[in-house]
């Protein structure tokens, strides 16, 4: 299958605007620092990682909501960073965005109908009448009453608003949707409704998803392939089975072991890997492997001096660790010691 989206060496650095001193030094936040992946037509690629690792920034650069600092983005063969005017407009029709917060992303003074018709108006699609019909049809598609076009967001629950956000993204019949934490703010029972809806719509419209989330269980459920990010880099990339059933990077393994599973019996038997400290500051990321300050396997000076490349560990499965192998952290390295090892800040 052909790749619909190809991202190569994507970099996004933000100037530091806190404190004159740091910005004078030319310091930058290395939000995304050399990220490469592809997304095939019709598939769902998951981007997962802890807060601040650069997931949203990656998504925004792809959609040109942000201009990348460096790297190449190709969509259906076109060089996305070079697109101008009409071509950029057409690209933005094809690649839509769904946001996490259904409260903040919908204008409270607009009715659902106005919110949904807006992209059509911007792109000059259809007559007023046709637009209204399309809105009603789309509301029905996402499981809402078509009569709701005259109602306002505040009258609805989080799940219903997220449905409107999805309907809006679908109005221009995009090829791809970047979903940035679309279910993170929702309760489990509503979250399941929205996940099912996204899956049905993918089938119905042949959509391609870039699905951003920090919830590993949701990513596992919805994605075909998964990219795990840490401090602006992809540390592991592969099919969901490979990544979840045989993680090759110690960070992936730690993440998976840290998520409590909803099964008391199993949870009692599991050992969890406690990483020490917090994620370091992306203004001054650690040298060598960025994970070395928290990694239970790090060997010095190798890991603090040489950056491990993202290399193939199995067909279609890559990891960026000098010691990449399935379940790299042995049982005796798991456990509580790290808890009192002190935060490495």
């Amino acid at each position: 299958m052909a790749a619909l989206l190809e991202v190569e060496g994507l970099v996004k650095h933000f100037p530091v605007n806190e404190g004159v001193f740091l910005s004078r030094l030319g310091k930058t936040v290395k939000a995304v620092d050399g990220v490469s992946f592809t997304v095939d037509e019709g598939e769902t690629l998951g981007l997962v990682g802890e807060s601040g690792c650069g997931k949203s920034t990656t998504g925004r650069c792809i959609n040109r909501l942000l201009e990348a600092t460096a790297g190449r983005i190709r969509f259906a063969g076109a060089d996305v960073r070079r697109l101008r005017r009409q071509d950029l407009k057409a690209y933005r029709r094809d690649v839509q965005f769904i946001f996490q917060d259904p409260y903040a992303s919908l204008n409270p003074r607009m009715t659902f109908g106005e919110i949904m018709a807006e992209p059509l108006v911007i792109h000059g699609v259809g007559t007023r009448r046709e637009r209204q019909d399309r809105c009603k049809e789309m509301l029905e598609t996402v499981g809402l009453n078509p009569e709701h076009i005259h109602r306002y967001p505040h009258e609805f629950s989080g799940g219903q608003r997220q449905r409107v956000g999805i309907a809006r993204a679908l109005m221009l019949r995009p090829k791809m949707i970047i979903c940035d934490e679309p279910v993170s703010a929702l309760d489990v029972s509503i979250q399941a409704q929205i996940i099912n809806l996204l899956e049905e719509l993918q089938q119905e419209f042949g959509l391609t998803y870039l699905f951003i989330a920090h919830d590993l269980a949701v990513i596992r459920h919805i994605c075909d392939r998964v990219a795990v990010m840490y401090l602006g880099k992809i540390v592991e990339l592969g099919g969901w089975r490979e990544v979840y059933n045989s993680p090759n990077h110690p960070y992936t393994q730690s993440l998976l072991s840290a998520v409590p599973v909803p099964d008391p019996e199993k949870q009692r038997r599991r050992a969890r890997i406690i990483l020490k400290g917090d994620v370091p500051n992306p203004i001054d990321p650690p040298s060598g492997c960025r994970f070395h300050t928290r990694c239970p396997l790090a060997q010095f000076p190798l890991c603090s001096e040489q950056e491990p490349a993202l290399r193939q560990v199995a067909p279609g499965h890559q990891a960026a660790c000098h010691f990449a192998k399935p379940f790299p952290i042995p049982e005796h390295k798991m456990g509580r010691e790290a808890l009192f090892d002190g935060d490495s800040e």
């Binding site: 979250q191 269980a217 099964d263």
Partner: peptide
């Protein structure tokens, strides 16, 4: 039933609770 399964290799649809 709304939770994504963590232990099966076959990912069927989730069973949400309907309504609000």
């Amino acid at each position: 039933d709304s939770l994504p399964r963590h232990d099966v290799d076959d990912k069927g649809a989730l069973c949400p609770i309907q309504g609000q």
